[in-house]
Amino acid sequence: MPMSASPACVGLAWSLVEQRLITWRLDEDARYDAHLVLAELVANAVSVTPAGRSITVHCRRDEDGVTIGVADPCPGLPRAPAPLVEPDLDDLDLDEENFDDNGGWGLSIVTALSAACGVTPLASGGKVVWARLKT
C-alpha cells in the first residue's frame, strides 16, 4: 500500500491494515498491538522520508502470525533501541516548548510487542523495517 509520506498517512495506514486484520478475524488485543507497531513504524518512516516521496506499508499473514513492514527510500538504518529503563521525571524535559521531544521509545515498543523484528535493505537504496506479531 504505497502512500504519500506525511503525518496524516499514519491514520490512513491504520484504517487499511485494520480492515485486513478484521477480515483475518484477529481479536481486539492482537489488533491493538498491531496498531501500536504500525503507528511507530509509519511515524519513523515518515520522519526520514524527504517531502514529496512515498512510503509503502506491507501487511502479510501466514500460519505463524502477521508481519507488518514499512518501506521508505532512506538508506540509513534505524538505531537499535537502548536497553529499556523506566524514565525518571528528572530525565524528561517538561518545558512547554520541548514537551513533545521526550520520545525515542518507538523501536522499544515495537521490540517488546513483536515475536521478531528487523530491517531488510532494498536494492533501490531504501529499506523495509518490519515486525512479526504472533496471533
Rank of each mutant, 00 (worst) to 15 (best):
G104F: 03
V110N: 04
R132V: 00
E97G: 14
C117Q: 10
E96D: 14
V128Q: 10
W130K: 07
S124R: 02
A116S: 12
L113C: 12
E96H: 05
V119M: 10
R132Q: 11
G125P: 01
G104P: 02
P121R: 12
S124L: 04
G106S: 10
S108H: 08
P121I: 00
G104C: 01
T120K: 10
S124K: 01
N102C: 11
V119G: 09
S108M: 14
L113R: 08
A123E: 12
N102I: 05
I109K: 05
L113M: 07
N98V: 06
T111G: 10
D100W: 12
T120P: 06
S114L: 01
E97C: 08
S124N: 04
D95G: 12
A131I: 02
I109H: 08
L107D: 03
L122Y: 01
L122D: 09
D100A: 13
G106P: 08
W130M: 11
V129N: 07
V119F: 13
D95A: 13
W130N: 09
A131S: 15
V129T: 11
R132D: 07
P121S: 05
D95F: 09
T120C: 08
W130T: 03
T111S: 15
I109D: 13
L107M: 10
G118Y: 07
S114E: 01
C117P: 01
S108C: 08
G106W: 03
L107T: 03
T111I: 09
G125C: 02
C117S: 13
E97W: 09
N102K: 07
V119T: 15
A123D: 14
D101F: 09
A123V: 05
N98F: 10
P121A: 12
L107Q: 08
A115K: 14
F99S: 06
V119A: 14
T111K: 15
L107E: 01
F99T: 03
F99Q: 03
D95E: 13
T111L: 15
A115T: 14
C117K: 03
A131K: 13
T120G: 06
W105E: 07
G125D: 00
V119S: 10
S114Q: 02
V128G: 06
G103C: 05
A131L: 13
W105R: 09
V110S: 06
G106K: 04
L107G: 02
G103K: 07
S114A: 13
A123W: 01
R132M: 06
L113I: 04
F99M: 04
P121H: 05
D100I: 06
L113N: 09
L113A: 12
V110K: 01
A116R: 15
S114I: 03
I109Y: 11
I109L: 14
V110L: 07
D100N: 12
D100K: 09
G125M: 01
R132P: 03
L113V: 08
E97T: 11
G125T: 00
G118N: 06
G125E: 00
E96P: 11
W105P: 03
